[in-house]
Amino acid sequence: MTEMVVIRAFLIIPFVALIVAVPVFWGWGVSWLDLAVAAAFYTVSTLGITIGYHRYFTHGAFRANRPLRIALAIAGSMAAQGPVLGWVADHRRHHAFSDRAGDPHSPWLFGTSPVALAKGFWHAHMGWLFGRDRTNVDRFAPDLAADADIRAVDRLFPLWVSLSVLLPALIGGLATLSWWGALTGFLWAGLARVSFQHHVTWSVNSICHMIGDRPFASRDRSANFWPLAILSMGESWHNSHHADPTCARHGVRRGQIDVSARVIWAFERLGWAWQVRWPTEQRLARLAVKSTASTAPSKGSS
C-alpha cells in the first residue's frame, strides 16, 4: 500500500508542477543551469529505464557485472516510474499478453471505435497506473525477487525518487548561492523533468502501439515511431523490439538512432557488460519476410 501511495504521488505531483511551472515561471524563472541539470538527470535516469529496467532486467539482452547491475537499478528508480521489481514484472506481463486480454497497458483492449480508441489511449498512456490490477512479481520476476541486491534497491525506491528531485535543488542552490536557484532547480530539473520523462515513456506504451511503421513480424500492434527516438533513447523503435525482444539494439536499421544501444556498446567495450545480444542480418531477414502479415491485429487484439 505504501509503495502504491509513493508511486501515485510521483505520478500526480510532477504533472501538476509542470502545469503550474510553465505559465508561472517560463521566460524568467528557468535558467540555463536548470536546463543543463534537467538534461543530465533526464539522461541518466532514462538510460536507467531503457538499458537497466528494460533491456537488461526485463529481457536479459546482456550480462552485467555487479556494480553496473546495481547502478542501473538505482538509475532506473530515479525516473520515478516504480520500483524495479514491479516495473519488470509489469513489462514481462505486457510481452506475454501484448495487445490481448492480460496486457496491463494495451490501447486495443476496448475496441476500435473512436470512443474505444480514446479510452484505450488514456488507459495505455497512464490510466492503467491508477487501477487495482497488480502484476504478480513472484510469477513474472522470480529471478529478480531472489536477488538480494535488487531487493535492497527495490525497498529503497522512495529514497532514490527523493534524491532524483532534491539533488537538482541542491545543485541549483549551491551553484547560484540562492534559495531561488534551489527552488527553480527543484521545479524544473526535479519535478517538471520527471513529469516530462513519464510522458515520453508512457508514449511508448500508447502511441507506439497505435501508429507508426511495422516492418517486422510481431504478435501485436507494436510500431516504430521515429519522432520519439531521441527522447526515448531508442525505445520508440517498438515494432523492432517486439519482433525480437531480447535484442540489445532496437533501432536495427540504418539511420535509426538508438542511444541506449550505443551506451550498451560502450559498456561492452569497457568490460562491464558481455554476452550482448546484437542483431544479425539473418535474424532481421527472417523477421522482415513476414512483415506484411504482421500489420494486421492478432486475434483478440482489438
Rank of each mutant, 00 (worst) to 15 (best):
M1R: 14
T2H: 13
E3Y: 09
M4H: 05
V6F: 10
V6M: 15
R8V: 04
F10D: 03
I12F: 06
V16L: 15
I19R: 11
A21W: 05
V24M: 14
F25D: 04
G27Q: 11
G27T: 11
S31N: 08
L33P: 00
L33Y: 00
A38V: 06
T43M: 14
V44M: 12
L47T: 04
G48N: 06
G52C: 11
H54D: 07
H54L: 05
Y56K: 05
T58M: 08
H59K: 08
A61T: 06
F62T: 02
R63W: 00
A64S: 14
P67E: 13
R69D: 01
A71I: 07
I74D: 01
A75K: 00
G76H: 03
G76F: 01
A79F: 04
G82V: 01
P83S: 13
W87A: 07
V88G: 02
A89N: 04
D90F: 01
H95A: 12
P104K: 07
H105V: 09
P107N: 14
P107M: 12
P107C: 13
T112S: 15
T112M: 03
P114Y: 04
V115Y: 03
L117Y: 00
K119Y: 00
F121M: 13
H125W: 12
M126S: 14
M126V: 14
L129Q: 11
L129S: 12
R132Q: 06
D133T: 13
T135K: 12
T135N: 13
P142Y: 11
A145C: 05
D147F: 01
I150E: 01
A152G: 03
F157T: 04
W160P: 04
S164G: 09
A169S: 08
I171M: 08
L174A: 11
L174H: 03
T176G: 10
S178F: 09
W179R: 15
W180L: 15
A182Y: 02
A182T: 09
G185V: 06
F186E: 06
F186Q: 09
F186T: 08
L187M: 15
W188D: 04
A192T: 08
F196T: 09
Q197T: 06
H198Y: 11
H199C: 02
H199P: 00
V204W: 00
V204M: 02
V204R: 02
S206D: 07
H209L: 04
I211N: 05
I211G: 04
D213Q: 14
R214Y: 01
R214W: 02
R214H: 09
P215S: 14
P215N: 10
P215K: 14
P215C: 10
S218P: 02
R219T: 10
D220Y: 02
R221C: 14
A223S: 15
P227N: 12
L228R: 04
L228V: 10
I230D: 01
L231K: 06
S232T: 12
M233W: 03
S236C: 09
D244E: 08
P245Y: 08
P245H: 13
P245S: 15
T246M: 12
T246R: 15
G251Q: 10
R254T: 10
Q256C: 13
D258S: 11
W265Q: 15
A266D: 03
F267A: 15
L270K: 09
L270I: 08
W272M: 15
W274E: 15
V276S: 01
V276I: 06
R277I: 09
R283S: 11
R286P: 00
A288D: 10
S291G: 15
A293Q: 11
S294I: 10
A296G: 10
P297C: 11
S298K: 07
K299Q: 13
G300I: 12
S301P: 03
